[in-house]
């Protein structure tokens, strides 16, 4: 990639994306009366103190129930939303202190693929216009060749059959490939994929997953893959973070996490995934109800109100270091991992 004015530190050998204590709190809309009598504004703590580091060439999985803050974290990470606290470092440079030139470079190197293939393409843009836009914005030359190459990369071949199409002429899988082509035409170094296959048919899902996996490897990108389904995460991710109410509650190498989840929430998430095996009959859910709104969080472990293993010690808040394997790779924010393992 021909970068003329290199202002970010491309020789940095730490994690490509690193966040610490990241927070995104939304002010909760309260009634006007409440505001007039001077009630204090409450906050929805969508992301509440996340530490995470993603290396080049690595795909990090982010898994959790609906509403636990996955998309918000993804969007904050790529600068679509302003964090309300904590730090985001891209190639070691703090996002909030980047110069304009550096920021532009950041924009160019950090991209996102969205969930809904029916709403994430502008209905009025042809495939060609849609993929050309990032090149125009960043004033990059050889646009035609790059568009062509991006389409081939996304396996939309032969490209000339797709270039003039509009989104409503494409199937869901093809649309998602167009999104991939657009995200990759700038040859980014970091990409967030937010449930890119959840709305696709099973027979196309596999091909999109395989494609993403291949591209992350080939282009040596860092990636964050968001899903609520561990079976999809398993296909895609080297490491996985489990998120609950704005916090990462478990992190570890994906296979290890799937073979032996530690946090009670991760256990429940894994148990809930249906398996294509008729010997399995649907079992009693480990979790009842839905997560509370992340407004007034309980004292201590935030999973306590739903946790079947909660005990006295859980009134103190566990950090991710509450449980850690000897090699330090697998960690969980739970005081009672060993006890539960024995049960």
């Amino acid at each position: 990639m021909a970068i003329t004015e290199q202002s970010l530190n491309w020789d940095y050998d730490g994690p490509i994306m690193e966040v610490a204590g990241l927070e995104k709190h939304f002010p909760q809309s309260t009634g006007i009366v409440h505001q007039l009598i001077g009630g204090d504004t409450k906050h929805v703590k969508a992301v509440d103190g996340v530490d995470m580091a993603i290396e080049s060439g690595e795909t990090m999985g982010l898994v959790g129930e609906s509403g636990c803050g996955k998309s918000t974290l993804g969007e904050v990470l790529i600068g679509l939303q302003e964090p309300t606290g904590g730090s985001i470092k891209f190639l070691g440079t703090e996002l909030s202190s980047m110069s304009d030139a550096q920021h532009k470079e950041f924009r160019r190197n950090v991209q996102m693929i969205f969930q809904d293939p029916y709403e994430s393409l502008n209905p009025r843009f042809s495939v060609e216009q849609w993929i050309r836009e990032p090149l125009e914005v960043h004033d990059i030359d050889n646009q035609d060749e790059r568009i062509y190459e991006a389409l081939e990369r996304a396996e939309l071949t032969p490209p000339e059959n797709y270039i003039g199409e509009h989104p409503h002429e494409l199937s869901g899988g093809e649309r998602q490939r167009v999104s991939i082509a657009r995200a990759l035409v700038l040859e980014p170094k970091f990409i967030v994929a937010d449930e890119p296959v959840s709305m696709l048919d099973v027979s196309v899902r596999a091909s999109i997953l395989n494609l993403l996996r291949k591209l992350v490897d080939e282009l040596d990108m860092g990636a964050l893959y968001i899903s609520h389904d561990l079976s999809l995460i398993r296909q895609m991710c080297d490491r996985t973070s489990v998120m609950y109410l704005g916090k990462v509650v478990e992190r570890g190498p994906t296979e290890r996490l799937i073979k032996g989840p530690k946090h009670p929430y991760a256990r429940a998430l894994l148990d809930a995934v249906p398996v294509p095996n008729p010997e399995h009959n649907i079992s009693e859910p480990q979790l009842e109800g839905e997560p509370p709104d992340p407004v007034d969080l309980p004292e201590g472990c935030n999973f306590r109100p739903r946790c079947p293993f909660a005990a006295e010690e859980c009134f103190e808040e566990p950090g991710l270091d509450a449980y850690e394997t000897a090699d330090g790779e697998h960690a969980a924010a739970c005081w009672r991992v060993e006890t539960v393992d024995e049960m």
Binding site: E75, I78, L80, K104, R107, R108, V110, Q111, M112, F114, Q115, D116, E119, S120, L121, N122, P123, R124, E133, P134, V137, H138, S179, R182, A183, L186
Partner: peptide, 26 residues
């Protein structure tokens, strides 16, 4: 709020571009 507008912001499109090229035609 549509993802395609988010996508435009992700690639670095300016407000003017988003308003006149993405939203206005719609």
């Amino acid at each position: 709020e549509k993802p395609f507008v988010k996508s435009a912001r992700t690639v670095g499109a300016s407000d003017r571009r988003i308003i006149y090229r993405h939203i206005a035609p719609n």
